[in-house]
């Protein structure tokens, strides 16, 4: 070795192998993105600050937005009715813009459980839930959730009783889906904010249920 750079058979101080650096060559589309972005900045169409601000805005979206919508639906029957009738309009009322994609809210009841998947790609209500989890985009989740959804749910720790009908929503086109989980028992005295804390991302995808208080 010309210098004392460690080789990759070494272990870290914690006894694990070092992970290889991820600096392989750029893909075709990565090169395309960089080229278009740099050209647009050079030509004054946009600025680096505007690009960073947009990335920050995307990262700021998170499941707390969806949870606030669900909690409002739990405490306000008129809002719940408006949410189920027109998801986009109801979210806009709360100040959450769902963008060009329309939102459909679907409610879990004692008889029906809903779960959302996008078999074709990874459509997801990002404005309400933020970026989708990696598993949502995996081929395994996308193909198995339409084929053997009960088995998939059981792997998430959710065993549906035989009497409950499962409704799988394949988000194939222009709509985005938000599952409104059932309100847990024993929450009659909780505030809207405390209720929102029970609403997990997975419950709003339908692979889980709301937490118990």
């Amino acid at each position: 070795m010309p210098h004392d750079h460690h080789d990759h058979d070494e272990l870290s101080p914690s006894g694990h192998p070092y992970r290889a650096d991820q600096d392989g060559p750029l893909s075709y589309w990565q090169v395309m993105e960089i080229a278009v972005r740099e050209l647009m900045i050079e030509k004054g169409v946009t600025t680096a600050e505007a690009v960073s601000a947009q990335i920050e805005a995307m990262d700021a979206r998170n499941p707390a937005h969806g949870a606030a919508v669900v909690a409002r639906a739990w405490v306000d029957p008129a809002f719940r009715a408006r949410l189920l009738a027109d998801g986009s309009a109801a979210c806009a009322e709360m100040g959450f813009d769902v963008g060009p994609m329309r939102l459909i809210a679907i409610e879990n009841t004692a008889d029906v459980h809903n779960v959302v998947v996008c078999t074709l790609c990874s459509c997801y209500p990002r404005n309400l839930l933020g970026l989708p989890p990696d598993w949502y985009k995996s081929r395994a989740y996308r193909s198995r959730t339409v084929r053997e959804p009960r088995k998939v749910l059981s792997e998430f720790g959710l065993e549906l009783p035989a009497g409950v009908t499962l409704r799988v929503h394949d988000s194939t086109a222009d709509m985005r889906y938000l599952v409104v989980p059932a309100r847990p028992e024993g929450t009659a005295d909780l505030s809207e904010a405390d209720l929102a804390a029970l609403v997990t991302r997975d419950a709003m995808i339908g692979v889980g249920v709301a937490k118990a208080p």
Binding site: L166, V168, H169, S171, T172, D174
Partner: peptide, 13 residues
């Protein structure tokens, strides 16, 4: 089918 009475909904043009 895992449970024939379960349903699947999709958007079709």
């Amino acid at each position: 089918a895992e449970r024939p009475e379960d349903v699947l909904e999709a958007e079709i043009y």
